[in-house]
Design a protein around this nucleic acid. Structure first.
Lengths: 195, 195, 195, 195
DNA sequence: CATGAATGAGAGTTCATTCAT
DNA sequence: GATGAATGAACTCTCATTCAT
């Protein structure tokens, strides 16, 4: 594929992303994408054979863009601050209403559940979350900011809780207050209060 | 509708339950249900106007049947044992592969998210879980089996974690080992070890 | 059929009349009638085998009820007055919006066009109109109130004009002003002005 | 849509016209049109979204084709001759059995009664008829061929009468003799007999 | 007589997918 | 590569009509 093709793909992904954010995964049709992109029906098939293919590309782009905004800040801050940053990021994702691919991703992986991390971006995301969080906790323990006998286990536990809030937000709603209380509860179990 | 009608409804719900467990919510068509029930196309419409209506009835039946298998046992057992029972029940649900309505319920409530507990059976289930768990914890604290400064908050935190494992099981898979470790981690934070 | 049956038929006709007035003939289903009458599906079929059968009975009842409200008044009034009464009756029918069976009757006879007056109530109505009108005109000529060389032909011409306004009212709308002007035009061609 | 599309549309309209002439408007289904055109189910929907859309296009084509066959002849003929031509045209329409869209048009506008002339082709037709007729009468009066104090009113009256015969022809039948007598009656009221 | 559950035909509509140009 | 017309399968939903009770 030439450069032109790449540009077209970019266009498709951009528009498709909006659609998936709006309608989830299952309700999106090839027609939806064609209409949104002002591309020809046949044209789309030159690049993608199904909505699943489009979605995977959209999701991949999403991950690539997410990057670790945290990595940059380490060093200047206390680990408590960094943990707070991390949790705030999670909170934002939990409460995000517009432009979220969460539902689409759930719908996609419900019927398409590869367990290998490399084929399952949700899993990738979770595993990366656990890893980052574990490092934060370990370092915090080293610096005697946190009390946490088993940082790995704690990290995983926290990430499952985040996941639980994420899905709850999309199925039954969750208030910002509840999320805050939950985050405080978690922090309360870790941070060593100075007296 | 007479008694006969009720029987027919029962048949429909039974068959429909299997279908929803197998295909989730969104992929199920009225035709799927018709075929499974050996009923006529128009016949189904006498009872239900849409797959959503059928599903809500299926889900309601599910909830009704779940009943508190725990309530019966209180008294004879230590609170630790009761908590263990509760968590085992959760574990069973998390790992259940066949006949689970979890995915269907998520799919349904993704696009149909009433926040009132009475209209949202997922929320009902979660709220009930929190309530039961909080009571267990409180009583455990009273009996000095548990250490838990804020049972309500702990209960909610645990339920979100369960929810996180439930959705993770359906989207990226989760091993029994992981679930066990997670439950142990939770227990470890609560139970006062006798020495 | 016993008396009870007759009562039931009356009920059906009454409700059905409303429906035909509202929806015309072609859009009415047996189900519509069943629902409106709070009768059983099978029950309706005991009396009528199709909407056409119901409609013909409704229409017959309509004709029976119309009776000549004019006949009674002859004698006391001038023929001009009587003609005016007749035309006013027509005007009312032309402009009538609610409870009119006009559209239903047109729809029915479009696809079911018996030419014998006895089988075609629209034709019956028109023929009766022509006859009555012709008599009025003849008597008016006798009394030297009207100028009208050929009362029969004039009567038929007027009735066609009425029919034209009736159908126009239902397909393109007609204002009261237009009807009035039309009636005046007709009168102007008949009545001998006294000086 | 390219040229080919236009051809397809032409084909559809041609076939659809026959169907509407045969079955009226309400009984025609998209499937009827599909079958007649040897086109696929989905294919028709590329061009028209409903039978109403098809019908309006058919009717518009009809109007476009009708054109003023009268305009061409003015000048050479006496106004009596022109009036006769006009009425003969009307007679042809009234008595036409095959290929008439009259019933379909009535059925369509019964349930879809826009009063603006531009949205209602029946009204357009009637208004145009009145206008043409009024001009004929005026010119006839100028040339002292006709006696007619109010040509506009006369024109409208005549057109309502035509409409009345048209609908009567379709609902109760009308004989050619009756139409002729009616036209003669109208002419008799206008033309000044030379002695 | 009367009921109303049940059937199955048929209409509307939407899309994934193909293919000639 | 790119187009968009065309196909046909699939789904939703509604009724006329029947028939066991």
């Amino acid at each position: 594929m030439g450069e032109k093709s790449e540009q077209k793909k970019e266009l498709i992904l951009e528009k498709a992303r909006e659609i998936f954010a709006q309608k989830g995964f299952k309700d999106v049709t090839m027609k939806d994408i064609v209409d949104a992109c002002e591309i020809s029906r046949g044209g789309l098939y030159l690049y993608y054979g199904s909505t699943a293919e489009v979605f995977l590309d959209v999701l991949q782009g999403e991950m690539d863009r997410e990057e670790d905004s945290i990595g940059k800040n380490v060093g200047k801050l206390t680990m408590s601050d960094i943990l707070l940053l991390f949790l705030k990021e999670q909170k934002k994702e939990i409460l995000r209403k517009k432009n979220s691919l969460t539902i689409a991703a759930y719908e996609y992986y419900f019927e398409n559940k590869p367990q290998k991390s490399k084929d399952n971006l949700l899993k990738t995301q979770m595993d990366m979350g656990i890893e980052v969080l574990a490092k934060i906790l370990e370092e915090g323990v080293n610096r005697e900011e946190f009390y946490c006998p088993d940082p790995k286990a704690a990290a995983r536990n926290i990430m499952f809780t985040m996941e639980g809030m994420k899905v709850s937000a999309k199925t039954m709603g969750i208030s910002e207050k509840t999320v805050d209380e939950e985050l405080l509860y978690i922090l309360g179990g870790l941070v060593i209060e100075e007296d």
